[in-house]
Nucleic acid binder design. Structure first.
Lengths: 253, 253
DNA sequence: AGCGTAGCGCTACGTTGTAGACCCTACGTT
DNA sequence: AACGTAGGGTCTACAACGTAGCGCTACGCT
């Protein structure tokens, strides 16, 4: 995008005559992501980021108008890892399944980014969001519309699907405690701290909580959500069945 | 809770002889919530909160060990508004439905708290969370177990349900732009800024996006989720049908 | 009466995001 | 060749932040 027109050099002059690689927005975002991955969102400050890149912190404002926009950029960077396979690769519900798994993996790979992932869209209205964050939305809408969902139905389906995905990831990251050795005891002790009168069920679930299997729970949730979407599609298709059959290749669980 | 033992006065002395009402943790949390509701999470600072209460900011650390704990307290306060009706009041899926509506209303009433609502649990492991935030969890687990879910099934059902709710609320708040007059044009313009090549579907959905109806979408999502849970319960009950029928009163959509 | 102590408010420190001034370099014009 | 100017990179400075540390004060107990 901003190609700093007029300077074709790949290196920049320094006072001492030394040269250093020229910085790009991508470099900045990658460094920011690294900081967040390492120590959490709060650990990211313009100054620290500048130090990590060995640049003046003020320099960074060339690549992001504000810290907020920089955070949006990090979200965009992470979301760019989520590519939606084409429908060629399988049935539509299968595509959604694999996309969901991919999304989960990304979230687990960058747990500290998840708060940003779910929170930034609240601060940035859809129309002003970085393009990269809209690409999965478009791809999924296209997928859904392609198999016969009406525009409205596709949008609703997307919302249900993506909302479920966000909810699942939030749930799973909550369970994940950092020190797996102490988890068991700490959890039990923590739960037993609760008044037995008020929290009998929760206390009795300590054993269940420590054997959480996120991957399987995702699948179970997908069963429910995709099953529901499948039924909604059927309903849509049957109400408008006077129109000739679309190009949709259907079939579900 | 902390009743400041030893001082029965409801007023505190001031250097000038003036008296002022004694502060409670609840007062502090309410004031914090007010600040957040008015201007967002970032607008809450210990200093501003102190000013709002006309106290020394350091005083506040009597009621919360740190700002983080104060935020957890705000979440607890907001979540305390969510009471789960007893099953007497209807069938279990009906209870979940009404609880979901209530949750949505609370989120809409405190939109700026939602980031905290979904984010704080990531920072605070379950065992260390404020008791108030665990109460809905216990109540729902009790409800689910009461109608025949196994412990594991109840936990999974809770996660799916609550994850969906969080996802829905996040979705809905994203659509909600602050100035409803400009929403339409701004959104259209914003969408038309996107390259027509890459975003045909999204661009064509502008009209659909402006007529978002959160309440109805919640119901549709609930249809899917509760339907799925209902089926899961059936499956659970039929695999363990050798045991005599529990006290569960069943029946679904 | 004297002492211990627990709370209350203040000050101060290190850090934050970012506006604005500064300077230095490179180029267009005379 | 000399100069004006503009533009980008650097630095300083500011207001605000969370909170550790510390004296003071005023009370309860012996």
């Amino acid at each position: 995008m901003a190609g700093t027109p007029g300077s074709d050099d790949v290196e920049a002059r320094r006072p001492g005559g030394a040269r250093r690689p020229v910085l790009t927005r991508h470099d900045v975002l990658v460094a920011a992501l690294r900081l967040i991955d390492a120590d959490g969102v709060d650990a990211l400050s313009m100054r620290r980021l500048g130090r990590a890149l060995d640049r003046d912190p003020m320099r960074l404002y060339r690549f992001a108008a504000s810290k907020e926009e920089l955070l949006d950029g990090v979200v965009e960077l992470v979301l760019s890892e989520l590519e939606i396979p084409s429908r060629r690769a399988g049935d539509w519900d299968d595509v959604l399944r694999r996309t969901a798994r991919r999304f989960r993996q990304i979230a687990l790979a960058h747990p500290h980014v998840v708060p940003l992932l779910v929170t930034r869209p609240l601060a940035t209205p859809l129309a002003l969001r970085p393009i990269g964050t809209l690409r999965p939305l478009e791809a999924l809408l296209d997928l859904l519309a392609g198999v016969g969902f009406s525009p409205r139905g596709a949008l609703h389906a997307y919302r249900l699907y993506m909302g479920f995905l966000q909810g699942h990831v939030l749930n799973e990251l909550q369970e994940r405690v950092h020190d797996p050795d102490e988890t068991d005891d700490l959890l039990r002790l923590g739960l037993h701290r609760l008044p037995a009168r008020e929290f009998p069920r929760l206390r009795s679930l300590a054993g269940e909580l420590v054997v959480y299997d996120g991957a399987q729970e995702l699948e179970e949730g997908l069963d429910v959500v995709l099953g529901g979407l499948c039924r909604q599609l059927d309903a849509e298709l049957s109400t408008t069945r006077n129109r000739s059959g679309r190009n949709g290749v259907r079939g579900g669980p």
